[in-house]
Amino acid sequence: MLFCKECGKKLKENQLFCNGCGRQTAHSPTPKSQEIEQKTRYQKPASSSLNFKIVLICSIFIIGAFFAGKYFMGAKPEAEKAASPPSQVQAEKTEPEETQPPDEPPPPPVEKEEEEPTDTDTQTTITADIQSEEEETYEATAATTAVNSAHPADDLTDAITKLNEIKIPTSSRDISLTWQGHSEEDGLGFMAVDIPAEDLQGLFDLYDQGKIDVLKTWAKKVYEIVDDAGTRSGKEWSVYVGDQCVGAHPKTLPSEDLMNFSGSCGYSIPVLGGFNKANYTLILNERVFGANEEKDIILPDSSRYPLAEADIPFADDKARLRLARNEIFARHGYMFKSADLQEYFSTKAWYSPDPAFDGTLSDVEKHNVALIKRLEER
């Protein structure tokens, strides 16, 4: 027995509509138009399937053509490389990319400008006139030395090196002292202390033997070195040579002096000391430079300062220029082969012959010798 799903009224078999509510029963046939609509809604048309197949076939063809073209295009360069000589292929592999066209010439190399030589690079040959006619010569590098050096420590070190090289000749051997130095704001100090007893007594023996000239020659060399260092650095200087509390002493020194410089430990007698030219003394009382020594010298500063032409008032006097030039060598004790020069300097109280002098001059002296020589030849 069947009932209406809407109102529950009893239905007859094969009844198409409910008599109570008019609802179509389950046995009602589906209209044809509705059936066609359902079919068209859920069934895929045949034309759509055909279009899909066409698109698929075209895609496959295009992809295949792409890869085929790429293959044939790449095969030609490989064939050309295979036909090329091995060296050319290798060059193509290893040669870096050019940063400029190969036919363009490379830029010319930049030439370094030559630096102009400085004053210290200039070398001048100087000649020392030490004979009257044939003239014996010295050749050395001359350089103008700047006054008031900016490196006093270098001046001190250089001076110490030169002082250590000085030798004092004695009858048995040469004596060399070991020097020390210090630089303060107000000056330079040079000293030789802790002298071996044998060397110290050897210096005192020269004094006792009356060989004061040998000691003065050594003392003047010391003076020239320390005064040059002071001039370069723009500072005052002081010198002390001696030892404290030792047994060595000059035998000929007055007893009063021995008493003043002795004690329970021994003698403390200075060999050399001073802080300027006026009070520069040997063995307490012996002045290294005589009182009238400056008056006996033609150019007193020719060993201390670089001179200019204006500093030489007798520039036209050839004979006096010759003496002034050789005077620089005479201060070192040079023994002249020219008879007139040797005779002239032997009359000077400050001249002390030194057979060991080899002609070496300071930079200041080299400059002044060259200047005077130019004036003589003018």
Rank of each mutant, 00 (worst) to 15 (best):
74 G>R: 13
75 A>L: 04
75 A>I: 06
75 A>Q: 09
75 A>V: 01
76 K>T: 10
76 K>P: 00
76 K>L: 07
77 P>F: 05
77 P>L: 12
77 P>H: 13
77 P>E: 06
78 E>G: 01
78 E>K: 15
79 A>S: 08
79 A>R: 01
79 A>W: 08
79 A>K: 04
80 E>K: 09
80 E>A: 08
80 E>Y: 09
80 E>W: 14
80 E>P: 04
81 K>Q: 01
81 K>W: 09
82 A>E: 07
82 A>V: 11
83 A>D: 07
84 S>L: 03
85 P>H: 02
85 P>T: 00
85 P>E: 02
87 S>Y: 03
88 Q>G: 04
89 V>A: 10
89 V>G: 01
90 Q>L: 12
90 Q>I: 06
92 E>W: 15
92 E>M: 14
92 E>K: 09
92 E>Q: 11
93 K>V: 09
93 K>H: 13
94 T>M: 15
94 T>E: 03
94 T>C: 09
94 T>W: 09
94 T>N: 05
95 E>I: 15
95 E>C: 15
95 E>G: 14
95 E>P: 09
96 P>T: 00
96 P>V: 02
97 E>M: 15
99 T>P: 05
99 T>S: 08
100 Q>G: 04
100 Q>N: 05
101 P>L: 10
102 P>M: 07
102 P>Q: 06
103 D>R: 05
103 D>L: 10
103 D>Q: 11
103 D>W: 15
104 E>R: 13
104 E>M: 08
105 P>D: 03
106 P>M: 11
107 P>I: 11
107 P>R: 12
